[in-house]
Design a protein around this nucleic acid. Structure first.
Lengths: 353, 353
DNA sequence: CTGAAAGCGCTAACAG
DNA sequence: CTGTTAGCGCTTTCAG
């Protein structure tokens, strides 16, 4: 039985499983079992081992245990960027669940330019570095997903629905419908949309679906969505401002604007102010998210439960680890209209049918 | 020479250093050296090994390398919460640097309630899980810092200045001075402050320092800061709103409010609106940060380079790993006044001395 | 410049 | 219920 060497000079002592075993008078195997709560350990033995481990303040080395067991108790969340309201809240939700379950959370950003490539390579590098991945609004081609599956990695996607892994999303068509229903109910018919290019890889399908919902709502009252009134705002405040300016500068401007995110709505509000248009008197504005500062601006919006997105995804992933079978659930998070003061009835109702 | 077993049925092949060694006709030791760019490897050998590794798409197992080498190429950033503008931007800055240097970034939140305890235990658990830590606005007692040092962990703090580790901070007194100088220059003398309890563990010293700067600026023109006009806003929008309401409701309300963060300034703006006070006509408001939505609201503020905070901290930490010596640098990030439209000259100058 | 061999600290059969 | 014994895949002396 090799006797572990003493701790170095001023360094803190680092106990190994062997120290614990010696001190408790059992074998390392028993310590391992006892500490991990496995069966086949006498109650008294387990108690003694736990006691010794505690008194030594022993912590298993995660790298060693990872190497031996093949699990890392770490998951990664892949986001396009972390410093945006939406993504940081998703990460926060995931982090809370991970912390609770003793998992570590790695944050990876896959920025839009070389994003696809980056995701592929990181995914490869992630193999055996993490047990699973949460992809948030990161579009993955089927073959890459397949590849991840083969690497024994758990996967959950937020935003994208896949064939082989659980996913979490919101009903984006409903979001569009709810928003435009509200505007239509206020008498608006000529509605501008601040969205994103359909081809934008960042938010692949979201804009298209929300716009489809908007179309539905308009068609329900016998109107059509004017596609000339759809402008890209890149899901940023700055982009929303440009898009808003473009939309509101023309003389036959829309009487209401549906921004596909609150941040773009903020930009639209700036644009309106710069054009000396009063909101909501001259133009109504509605967003999506219920961003923290939406109440500050009185922004009417369609709220989504963002922190839940991350939490639910993390939970789904951890369940995947527990029950070995992967159930391809497609969860849906709820949304809800929040009316504030940037929307109001259309003043001039002359044009109404 | 043990021949590695073939990949399992549908699983993707997982190559080890041994595969590479065999394929390149060298020993595993040589592969290890070659791939890590160590000296003492013939140019031709290195080239061959690299070629083989690439063609096999080989990646060293991080757990194994961690176990053998004692380094994890992972650092952790500890924040009170991740879903706030400030912290998510700091994390973003750190993540960018880590990604660039091939380090993984673990995110740990130490929420305020049991925060201190949590930090201690996580720090212990972090030992040999990460190579270093970045503490962001997380106050650590000296003995705990000492303990971390003994565990061979690199440490950099953002916000708190320590005796043994590099730190990064802004000159918070200057921030207060800049803000109040601006207000004083506009003729304001009766200035309210939306801040935080000095005892608030979350932002330990920041409020006190900013307030001290504010006092300086006021004293420079022969005035004193009225401490009855200091109200806690907990660094949140909601808190700022309550504090603002309290400050602005009274009849002899201040003519200007200095909110110690933009988010509290947002709250103050809500409060003003709810009290039917026009900004800046009835009351001027200035914040700190230059939050993304500050331009939307036209908020005058003292900008700080938040993403730099995380990036500089991460860089300082990685440098600590490189040069073995720990240089206890105390870096300082810059700040800058950004004048927008929530501040204006005090209208009634009758009281002016 | 290269190879052999001894671990890093833990887990997981396999015996008892 | 417990101990023994192999490794997990890589790094790192130490020889050559």
């Amino acid at each position: 039985m090799p006797s572990p060497q003493p701790a170095e000079s001023r360094e803190v002592e680092r106990f190994t499983i062997e120290h614990v075993a010696t001190a408790a008078g059992v074998s390392v195997a028993t310590v391992s079992r006892a500490l991990r709560g496995l069966p086949n350990v006498a109650v008294s033995t387990r108690a003694r081992v736990e006691e010794v481990a505690r008194s030594l303040n022993y912590r298993p080395d995660p790298a060693a245990s990872r190497l031996a067991a093949g699990r890392s108790r770490t998951i990664a969340v892949v986001v396009p960027l972390i410093n945006s309201w939406y993504f940081s809240n998703v990460v926060a939700g995931a982090e809370a669940v991970c912390a609770e379950c003793g998992y570590d959370l790695l944050v990876l950003t896959a920025p839009n330019d070389d994003m696809r490539h980056k995701v592929v390579t990181t995914a490869a590098a992630l193999d055996r570095r993490v047990d699973g991945l949460i992809f948030v609004e990161v579009a993955l081609p089927d073959d890459e997903l397949l590849d991840l599956g083969r690497r024994r990695l758990g996967v959950v996607t937020v935003g994208q629905e896949t064939l082989m892994f659980p996913s979490l999303r919101i009903d984006n068509e409903a979001v569009g419908r709810i928003a435009v229903d509200h505007l239509v109910g206020l008498g608006h018919r000529r509605i501008g949309i601040v969205g994103a290019q359909a081809e934008d890889p960042l938010y692949f399908d979201v804009p298209g679906e929300r716009i489809r919902g908007a179309e539905d709502a308009l068609e329900a009252v016998g109107c059509r969505l004017d596609h000339d009134l759809i402008v890209s705002g890149e899901f940023t405040i700055a982009g929303g401002r440009e898009a808003g300016a473009q939309l509101l500068a023309s003389h036959d401007r829309p009487t209401a604007v549906f921004a596909l995110s609150d941040e773009m709505a903020f930009g639209t509000l700036i644009a309106a102010r710069e054009l000396d248009l009063a909101v909501p008197q001259d133009v109504s504005v509605i967003g999506v998210d219920d961003h923290d500062v939406a109440p500050v601006l009185g922004l009417t919006t369609v709220r989504q439960n963002v922190a839940d997105h991350g939490a639910m995804a993390a939970r789904a992933l951890l369940e995947q680890f527990a029950g070995r079978a992967v159930t391809v659930d497609h969860l849906e998070s709820t949304t809800e209209l929040v009316v504030r003061s940037t929307t109001s009835p259309r003043l001039d109702r002359a044009e109404l049918v």
